[in-house]
Design a protein around this nucleic acid. Structure first.
Length: 261
DNA sequence: AGAAAGCCTCGGCCGC
DNA sequence: TGCGGCCGAGGCTTTC
């Protein structure tokens, strides 16, 4: 579920922990999968003071007086900041909460806890992540950066849909956002990146910004314009054509064969 | 039962 | 022929 706007809302939640000292941390073997060992997280975070938060694409960063801590949320991860009141009410959107799905977190000196709730165990904790592996952030992306990303980075053979999802090119575009911006720009998702015209690139950039803006207005939810048609047998809301379903870059892609070309 | 909104690894293939 | 980079396939994991 979490796409970039959800991660941004988690970051804002984590902002409430700025100033707090971490008394304890823990991670299960999946949350710790990118770390040297299961105990690395607990050992590294103990005693750190949280000094700020940040985000690059879908990677949430917790700045401290020591190393930068980071969290990825995978497909189903949610960040919780609990209090004595309990956590159920703090969920962002409609979810079920199960204690067993808390895969790790941080305990703060004031008693609160930052928790990773993640049913499908694809969320990960990181320490001192290498931000050079990520492209510019999608939320703050400039038109110039977008142009560079689509023209001077790597070969031009990959389908534009796959390229948009490549986090090392632009950080933060997920599968739904990718479909939505291609839909709005009227571009066939299979088009090789190098075959896009300057006009098409411009339209894609405009579509990206417009989509993010609209989603932000709706509270960061993941419902775009063509999402109502995002179902087998769906009808394009623009021209009434049948929506097509393809796998592009390994991801399910919904698109309209009539106006996306 | 099959697919899932994220990410990582692996191996084939292409071009220099 | 050799090498490196690009790019797609497949896997992870659990749930609905």
């Amino acid at each position: 579920m979490p796409e970039i706007l959800e991660i941004e809302s988690y970051r804002q939640l984590a902002d409430h922990a700025v100033g707090a000292t971490i008394t304890k941390g823990w991670a299960d073997i999946y949350a710790a999968k990118k770390l040297p060992s299961v105990g690395t997280w607990a050992k590294a975070v103990k005693g750190l003071r949280i000094t700020g938060t940040n985000r690059r694409g879908k990677l949430m960063l917790i700045e401290t007086n020591g190393p930068t801590l980071a969290m990825r949320f995978g497909m189903t991860g949610v960040l919780l900041l609990d209090s004595d009141a309990g956590i159920e009410g703090l969920f962002y959107g409609p979810h079920t909460f199960k204690k067993d799905w808390v895969r790790g977190g941080l305990e703060l000196a004031d008693g609160r806890r930052l928790l990773l709730h993640d049913p499908r165990r694809l969320g990960r904790f990181e320490i001192e992540p290498d931000l050079n592996e990520l492209g510019p952030d999608a939320l703050t992306l400039t038109k110039k950066e977008f142009g560079v990303a689509l023209t001077s980075v790597r070969g031009g053979g990959a389908a534009i849909k796959a390229r948009l999802l490549d986090q090392s090119v632009i950080a933060g575009i997920g599968n739904l956002l990718g479909d939505e911006m291609l839909f709005r720009a009227g571009i066939d998702p299979r088009t090789p990146t190098g075959h896009l015209t300057p006009t098409q690139r411009d339209e894609l950039f405009v579509a990206l910004k417009a989509t993010l803006k609209q989603l932000q207005k709706r509270g960061g939810s993941h419902m775009g314009n063509h999402m109502s048609a995002r179902t087998p047998g769906g009808i394009c809301p623009l021209d009434g054509g049948p929506m097509r379903i393809s796998v592009i870059g390994g991801r399910t892609t919904y698109w309209c064969g009539q106006h996306q070309h």
